[in-house]
């Protein structure tokens, strides 16, 4: 990539060197390649804008919003956010059952995918899935980490997340 972007001045190599390899493309081909790259870039920008507008404007609905819009949502797939309720977590054979909460509204979750390693009570999560009745069927758990960084107490280091650190 670096090679391809180096030619700000249009000379990839010193052409006056006697060792000049015939690597320099004729100008028409160079131009075509440049336009082609530019075309790919424009397409990529389009894809990113499409993905961005489709996903990131409303990246998730909080549990309370989802309950409020329950009727509208039907069994559509969307992202649900909430804090994992302590004491509600039960591992199942394939995934985990738990509840999430936001603004005192609780949603029961049945997850069928392996939870990520930071999944734990009291952590905010974003779940991908859909409602079935009043239960949210999730097939992906993403942990929403906060911007806080706190040094682990040396005595607790060995047991943070139940893992040896």
């Amino acid at each position: 990539m670096v090679q391809s972007v180096s030619g700000g001045t249009g000379s990839d190599q010193p052409a006056n060197s006697s060792k000049a390899k015939p690597r320099v493309l004729p100008s028409r081909r160079r131009a075509r390649r440049a336009w082609l790259t530019l075309g790919i870039v424009v397409v990529a920008i389009g894809v990113l804008l499409y993905k961005g507008l489709g996903n990131s404007l409303v990246y998730f609905r909080t549990a309370s919003e989802a309950v409020q819009d329950r009727a509208q949502l039907g069994n559509r797939t969307f992202r649900l956010e909430g804090v994992v309720v302590p004491g509600s977590v039960h591992a199942t054979g394939t995934g985990v059952d738990f509840s999430v909460e936001s603004s005192n509204v609780f949603v029961q979750v049945h997850d069928t995918a392996n939870p990520p390693q930071l999944f734990q009570p009291n952590i905010p999560v974003v779940l991908v899935g859909h409602f079935q009745g009043n239960i949210f069927l999730s097939n992906q758990i993403m942990v929403k980490h906060s911007a806080n960084y706190v040094a682990a107490h040396p005595d607790r280091v060995a047991t943070v997340n139940g893992k040896k650190l």
Binding site: Q13, P14, N16, S17, S18, K19, A20
Partner: peptide, 12 residues
């Protein structure tokens, strides 16, 4: 490539 001043005969 810039150090020795190339003359015409050095050209490829």
């Amino acid at each position: 490539s810039l150090l020795p001043v190339k003359t015409k005969n050095d050209r490829d």
